[in-house]
Design a protein around this nucleic acid. Structure first.
Length: 513
RNA sequence: GCCCCAUUCGUCUAGUGGCCCAGGACGUGGCCCUCUCAAGGCCAAAACAGGGGUUCGAGUCCCCUAUGGGGCACCA
């Protein structure tokens, strides 16, 4: 029984509350998104932690689609979620496109099961039909923001019969215990205790016959044999409610852990599309998973980054592979406190991963970005440019500004950029002229030869290296900041290099000194 | 308003009663390297929210306060 041993090793042996000790079953965890829009990075993180937990324990990772809200359903979002998870490398053992023994994995296909168990609760006096109208509910909410007033819980049999006779629509509500306390043991935070009096008679089955999250979640986790629930912190308040549901059903509740929220990097509140704002440098803070992909982040960097928020590898290490993470992942290293989104760190990490990649792996990724920017890419040129730009990239998208000029037909520097410190148009033009003939006369047009010749030329012209090279850099790339000059020229080739130098020279003819 | 959760450098974090006048990383500043910019190397500044306990001893345990966050739908 290696699996149960592993779990026992991870979890403290002396928990205060052991009623729900699920330790002898193989680990089964789930990620349960609802197809209401693109995957949020916080959701991706939740999925990741579940996946890591499953892989660490040799258990199963299940993808379940919680599509019980017909009004919020968005076509295409399921595909987006699936694509996003795959991009991150989070494969599931059961779920959409992967059949398993506990299906179906779409809640919309399991409604009969929920109805059955909701009715079971009613039959056993643990739930009741509520006929309250939306108007009445709204009025209550105004005067009492903390829950339903339980009006229909105390209907007389006659009143109930009257509603039924009229065919009034109803929901099924849970009969929450009115006294006592409920305790939930959170694997990360310890016991969470609440007064039952603060708990509401929540709706289990909506009037359209669909279950609410609470019902569907509990029923599915039970029948799908889920052993551990890992979900975001905003669910903490419902944990005691769910515990009561498990009690009512007489089912063993899975172990549960609430992952810390991700907060906005600047400003306040949890990270959201609306409030994320911008970074100090003006970039928009990415929030949706696909936005990270589009911003040029590598999935392996993102995974590493996400595991550094709310969890730590230990050993003073920040950079580690998924394999290492799986080997080490456990809940005891999860930090319960919410954290701001340290995006600058992702930029650094992404750079680390870009530098670790081989040129062959990087090439198609960079080509894609260059082509998206409108360049026609020649692979031989890009392959040569990669070693030059690799240490200069933080995002895949940076390739456009770092190497776009390699693929441009012509380049258009300005006279102002061309003329270096303590130089004027005349001396700049003279430098270009001299460089042209030196480079034109080189027996071989290679980095070392170019460098030797140009350094000598700087001496001849009594220019500082930074002056001469600055002029040539702008002439050849139209940028003040670019990869190393001599390598750049060699890759560009003699013809292009000379053409660009000549063009720069021509530009200065009309420029007054 | 009510309920719940959290609180170590600017930020992400290590730390599970003595090994901590608190370690790492990003970022920031300085220096080195240098044709620009990176990358790399070296160095530096920078934190236990406050107050009470418990203990021989508290960043680590308890309580209060403050602050931050989350939740209070026929949404998940």
């Amino acid at each position: 029984m290696p699996t149960s041993c592993a779990i026992r090793a991870v979890f403290c042996p002396d928990w205060p509350d052991r009623r729900n000790a699920i330790v002898d079953r193989p680990v089964r965890v789930r990620f349960a998104p609802s197809p209401t829009g693109p995957l949020h990075i916080g959701g991706a993180r939740t999925a990741l932690f579940n996946w890591l937990f499953a892989r660490h324990h040799g258990g199963s990772f299940i993808l379940r689609i919680e599509d019980t809200d017909r009004r919020r359903y968005k076509a295409g979002s399921l595909e987006q979620i699936i694509e996003g998870l795959r991009w991150l490398g989070l494969n599931w053992d059961e779920g959409p496109e992967v059949d398993g023994p506990y299906g179906p994995y779409f809640q919309s296909q399991r409604t009969e099961l929920y109805r059955e168990w909701a009715n079971w609760l009613v039959a056993n006096d643990k739930a009741y039909r509520c006929y309250c109208t939306a108007e009445r509910l709204n009025a209550i909410r105004k005067s009492n923001p903390s829950g339903y007033d339980r009006h229909c819980r105390y209907l007389t049999p006659e009143e109930r019969a009257a509603h039924e006779a009229q065919g009034d629509p109803f929901v099924i509500r849970f009969k929450m215990p009115l006294e006592g306390t409920t305790t939930v043991f959170d694997e990360i935070r310890g016991n969470i205790v609440v007064d039952n009096a603060t708990l509401t008679d929540l709706v289990l089955l909506k009037s359209d016959g669909f279950p609410t999250y609470h019902l569907a979640n509990v029923v599915d986790d039970h029948f799908m044999a889920i052993t551990h629930i890992m979900r975001a912190e905003e669910w903490i308040p419902t944990a005691p409610v769910h515990r009561q549901l498990y009690e009512a059903f007489g089912w063993e509740m899975p172990r549960i852990a609430h992952l810390p929220v991700i907060l906005n990097p600047s400003g306040r509140g949890k990270l959201s599309k609306r409030s994320a704002g911008r970074l100090p440098d003006g970039r928009r803070v990415p929030v949706l998973l696909h936005e990270f992909r589009e911003a040029g982040y590598l999935p392996e960097a993102l995974v590493n980054f996400l595991t550094n928020i709310g969890w730590s590898f230990g050993e003073d290490r920040e950079v580690f592979s998924v394999e290492e993470t799986i080997a080490r992942f456990d809940l005891s290293r999860v930090n319960p406190a919410g954290s701001k989104f340290p995006l600058e760190k992702l930029d650094w990490l992404n750079g680390v991963y870009i530098r670790q990649k081989s040129a062959d792996d990087l090439l198609p990724l960079l080509r894609e970005r260059l082509e998206a920017a409108g360049y026609t890419v020649r692979d031989e040129v890009l392959r040569q440019a990669i070693p030059l730009i690799q240490p200069r990239l933080h995002s895949l998208n940076d390739v456009v500004e770092k190497a776009g000029f390699f693929f441009a037909e012509t380049v258009t520097p300005t006279a102002e950029d061309l003329i270096q410190e303590q130089m004027d148009a005349a001396s700049t033009r003279a430098a270009l002229e001299a460089a042209y003939s030196v480079l034109a006369g080189l027996p071989v047009f290679e980095t070392a030869a170019i460098e030797t010749a140009l350094r000598a030329l700087a001496g001849t012209l009594a220019l500082k290296p930074r002056q001469l090279f600055g002029v040539l850099r702008v002439a050849v790339t139209a940028q003040a900041v670019a990869p190393p000059l001599f390598e750049t020229m060699a890759i560009l080739g003699r013809e292009t290099t000379l053409a660009r130098i000549a063009a720069a020279q021509a530009l200065l003819v009309d420029t007054p000194a």
